[in-house]
Design a protein around this nucleic acid. Structure first.
Lengths: 184, 184
DNA sequence: GCCATAAAGCTAATGTGATTAGCCGTGTTC
DNA sequence: GAACACGGCTAATCACATTAGCTTTATGGC
């Protein structure tokens, strides 16, 4: 071994710092190296390239979301659980808007793995409705799409009037819950 | 005047060609210039810079979506209209996945203007339910979030099993429609 | 038909970032 | 105490975006 120094995790930490401050577009290896007090090429000792750093960052973020959502759902079930999931997910996005924009959806192994944790939470929740596996998968996809769509649009500032967004989201939660109960 | 040659619109055409073939990340001024048979700096006679080109491209795409959705909704109302909107929107995304990924959500005037056309179609549709203005806005936001979320996730390949996606989307349509009818 | 002009194109140059190659010091380990 | 592997560094290359300034060519007015 050699000096203690930088680790891959520490590089990701710095990357998140930059993203939080200036958005995903500002994530460059130069910027990370500057923050870490190191020359740019030195980073290649810890990450393969910029693409890998982005993927590590994305996975870390997805894991954070899964953590928060998993925590929120503890001790709740059915409608209460759905509401808790949706609230926690959106709150994460609002607390870290730039991080949310840095999420990669493209099938990228690391993020997919973290995303699977999140999906499993949703599936477990839907089993509380007595749903069959297949039905739970469809329901989970719908919930994911709705929440993610709202979070993306809100964090990117795509909605016009900011003041009533809580109300809109309440409606979305309501629609999801009632939609799940309604017979096909 | 000078030679006929390139126009801003033609540059956007070429940009869309590149996006369709290789995705939004491949959209560089060099690539556009190469395709257009022109030196890179010549493009600056037609677009201010790469950022503006992206914004023009995004606006064009959003307008295409609004066109398709607007067409789909003709002659329909209420539930039928909602279903038609959702189907047309997703179909556009599936026909042009790379274009869908090239959409910019950030408050960017040109895209916002085109997006407003789309929102107005949704609002008009919700009035068919006899909704008040405020309720229609919340409903439109929810519909937009759900459809956009599904389209983003599907076009980026974020969903696992491709074969049942039609079924999942049917469920989403069902959830939206029943959710809209259910009382708060 | 001839010229001024403005549009549209071009070459050259600069700056930023990513990435690679190859060198150097420093702990760790035997 | 010497070999080694790790982590950092400098130098160099490449791809792009962007700017400056020159050249060419329609075209409208004469």
């Amino acid at each position: 071994m050699a000096r203690a120094a930088l680790t891959t995790d520490a590089v990701v930490d710095v990357a998140l710092l930059i993203i939080d401050e200036k958005g995903p577009a500002a994530l460059t290896l130069s910027a990370v190296a500057g923050r870490a007090g190191v020359a740019t090429p030195s980073l290649y000792k810890h990450v393969r390239n910029l693409a890998e750093l982005r993927s590590l960052v994305s996975a870390r973020i997805m894991n954070e979301i899964a953590d928060q959502v998993g925590e929120a759902v503890l001790g709740r079930s059915a409608d209460e659980a759905i509401r808790a999931v949706m609230m926690a997910w959106r709150h994460y996005a609002l607390r870290h808007p730039h991080r949310y924009s840095a999420l990669i959806q493209t099938p990228e192994p690391r993020t997919v793995e973290a995303g699977t944790r999140l999906i499993n939470i949703l599936l477990a929740t839907f089993r509380a409705y007595g749903m069959a596996d297949s039905a739970a998968i469809h329901a989970a996809r719908c919930l994911r799409a709705a929440v993610h769509g709202f979070a993306v649009l809100e964090t990117e500032g795509a909605f016009g009037l900011p003041e009533k967004l809580d109300e809109s989201y309440d409606l979305l939660i309501h629609m999801m819950i009632t939609g799940l109960h309604a017979p096909r």
